[in-house]
Every structure is written in structure tokens, then in C-alpha cells.
Design a protein around this nucleic acid. Structure first.
Lengths: 203, 203
DNA sequence: CCCCGAATGTTAGTGACTAACATTCTGGCA
DNA sequence: TGCCAGAATGTTAGTCACTAACATTCGGGG
């Protein structure tokens, strides 16, 4: 894999990420300069941009796309695209390995508490969105519907991640699931008027 | 109102908007410099920033929030928050005045075709999102649910606007409605059987 | 007509990011 | 082991969005 003998590039990159996160946490994202991160990590500003295309990208490089897409593909094909996406994401995030969670939390928390990063977070979902659209279309959805479904689901997911990051006591899987419930309305409402629609909410 | 005797500030602002849009359309957003817009409009770069807080904001200042919020408030209170938001927005956009549409289209089209603006577009919905959350919470939804519902709806709306901007033949209200149908899954799935909900798909 | 404040201009600076070119360092191969 | 190609880094100089502080002009109401 990559666990033996980290090459020089990898070591510099790890150092940049670590110092970057630390500085962001200590003094805020906007108040932290790329030059400062670089200097603290013992390199040049130029070197920073050789490892990351932008300041933002230090925070939000996520490699989970393939799992999402696969899980969506596994949902019943006769479901509306939006619900397939919702449930696929639900299933995929259930499987996120525990050890990754602290690091994810650090990153998400910074993004969630930095207004100027809200937009960036959204843009960074571009790749994921594209992947989801591809899957949905391949399974028969129209391009139009797929794009809207993907956007909406990812928005719910991101909002759920933000909520999770702010709540120390919450587990990742549970938080995501609660978020997707808000949007996965079908069964709640009509699968019989039995059982009051949206009760038993939080405090 | 404001239709009589446009003050100097208003005239400069109108000139900046017009030249800005023109330049964006002719040579692209990223290729257009704030200095160039200002110069073409006969003012200084500094003056530009006295009228807009950022380059982006020339494109995406929209004043429709209050109508949205009001329409959402009008939805049945026993509906899940997400569906209230979806249907409120549907209702509100039905009422957008025709004369505004060409200008909206110009703006949305530029945003839709400029990758670097995707994030900005999303961030610009921040105010709207906040307003929607406020309405939903005031009507009894939890903060958590309201935030997720608002994010998801707005994502669907923006995706719908993008689709509309790219399709010359589509009407605004219809496009929005088709977009919200993707996400307003309840009736499609269960209310079904009665009157096909979202027919007349694209080519 | 004059004057106060709004609108604009000027200058100077910061920070993210890029391009072109020079230097050092590393890892694999002879 | 020693050497060398190429990777990794440094240097310099520049562009563009955006801000701050201060000077100037212009417009409309008294």
C-alpha cells in the first residue's frame, strides 16, 4: 500500500496538513496565511501550492466518492432517483471506518464554523455530484432529474456533517442518518396515516 | 418608489451591472477583471467595490427572500418541514414577474457556465437559507431538521435554475416546478395514480 | 448661491495564486 | 560506493481581488 517508507513528498504533505489544521483551529481559517502555514512547516509558500491547488483544498480533499456511487447503484432501480441517492448515501456512510472520524471531525468543524468556507465546501462536492449523476443516469434517470437529486442529497449530507461536527456527543453514522431522514420523507408521510408523521423530534 | 429621478448612485450602479454582465457574457467571468468593468463603466476600481462587496455579488444579488419565506409559512403546518419548504418555494416562484426573467436568465446562465462560480452561488443562498430556517423553526421544526431541509431545497432550486438557464425553450415557473418534483417525492410515489404529476420530460 | 455630505478618486498595501527559471536533494542504477 | 536524472524545493516577479486612509469633486437643498 503506502504504509512503508513515506517518500519525501508524502512527508512534506503530511506536515503541511497537520500544521495547517492546527493553525486553522488555533487562530481561525481566514486569519491564517498560506505563507504562515508554509513557514511553520519549514517550506516556502510556493511549495505549498505545489501540494495543494488552493488554500481551501488543504481542508477538503475527500476520497469517499467511489463508495457512495457504488452504494447508490445498489438501491432498488424502481425507486425515484432522489430516494435512491438518499438511501445509497445512508448505506455508504454507515460503513465509514471509525479511526477516520476524529480527522474528519476536525476538518468539518473548521469548515462549519468558517462562513467564507461554506461556498468552498459546496464547490468541493462538485466531483461527488458528478459521480452520482453518472450513476443515476446510467440506471435510467434523466439528466435533469439526476442533477437535481444529486445536488439536493449532497446539500442534506453536508448540512448533516456540519450539525455532527458541532455536536460532540453525536456519532457520525447516526447524525448522517438523522439528516437524511429529514429529506427521505416518503414513508413517513403516506405509508399509511398511521403513526403521527414527524413526531418525537429532538428538544 | 424608485422609478422617478434615478440618483447618481443608482445610475452608476446600473451602468456597472450592465457593463459587467456584458463583459462576462462576451469574454467569460474569470477572464473579466474588476478593473476592466470599472474602466469600461467610466469609474475606478475602488468605486466598483463601493457598490458591490465583491466581484461575485454583481451577479447574484437577489431580493426574493421575503416572498419565499411567506409562501413557506402558508403551507400546512402538519407537513414535514422539508415538504413545506419544497411546496412553499414552488408556490413562490410561480409568482415571479415575467419582465424580470430575461435579466435573471442572463445572470443564472453566467453562473451556471462558470465552474468557479458554483461555490459562490451556493454561498449566496446563505441569507435565503437562514430566512427559511427561521420560518420553519418558528412553525415548530427543530433547528437541525430546518437547516437540513433548507439546504436541500435550495440546492434543488439552484440546480433547477441552472437547468432552466441552459434551456432556451423552457419557462421559468415550469422549470422550477419540474425541479421540485424530483425532490417532492411523496406525491409522485404514493399520491400517484391521480393525474400524472411530472410529465412532458425533456428531449 | 453656497455649502454639506454623498460619490468618487488616489495611493499604498495584503493575501491568494501563477509563471519562469535556478538550485538542491533523493533514490535507483552502474 | 559513487554518480546522475529527475523530483522536490527555492527565488523572483507578477496579476488580481479586496481593503484602508486620505484627498477631491459634485450635486442638491437651504
Amino acid at each position: 500500500m503506502a504504509t512503508d517508507a513515506p517518500t519525501k513528498r508524502e512527508r512534506t504533505l503530511a506536515r503541511l496538513i497537520e500544521t495547517g489544521l492546527e493553525l486553522f483551529e488555533r487562530q481561525g481559517y481566514d486569519e491564517t496565511t498560506v505563507a504562515q502555514i508554509a513557514r511553520t512547516a519549514g517550506v516556502t509558500e510556493m511549495t505549498f501550492f505545489r501540494h495543494f491547488p488552493s488554500k481551501e483544498s488543504l481542508l477538503l480533499d475527500d476520497p469517499y466518492d467511489p463508495l457512495l456511487v457504488a452504494a447508490i447503484g445498489r438501491q432498488p432501480i424502481d425507486l425515484p432517483p432522489f430516494l435512491r441517492a438518499v438511501r445509497g448515501i445512508r448505506e455508504a456512510w454507515r460503513a465509514v471506518p471509525d479511526p477516520d472520524q476524529p480527522m474528519i471531525r476536525r476538518r468539518v468543524r473548521i469548515a462549519a464554523t468558517t462562513p467564507s468556507l461554506r461556498g468552498a465546501t459546496w464547490r468541493s462536492t462538485g466531483n461527488t455530484e458528478h459521480a452520482i449523476v453518472g450513476r443515476l443516469v446510467a440506471d435510467g434517470a434523466s439528466d435533469h432529474d439526476a442533477r437535481i437529486a444529486a445536488s439536493a442529497v449532497l446539500a442534506a449530507l453536508v448540512a448533516g456533517l456540519f450539525a455532527w461536527a458541532e455536536d460532540e456527543t453525536a456519532g457520525l453514522a447516526t447524525s448522517i442518518e438523522r439528516a437524511l431522514d429529514v429529506v427521505d420523507v416518503e414513508c413517513v408521510v403516506h405509508e399509511a396515516d398511521a403513526a403521527e408523521p414527524a413526531e418525537a423530534r429532538d428538544a
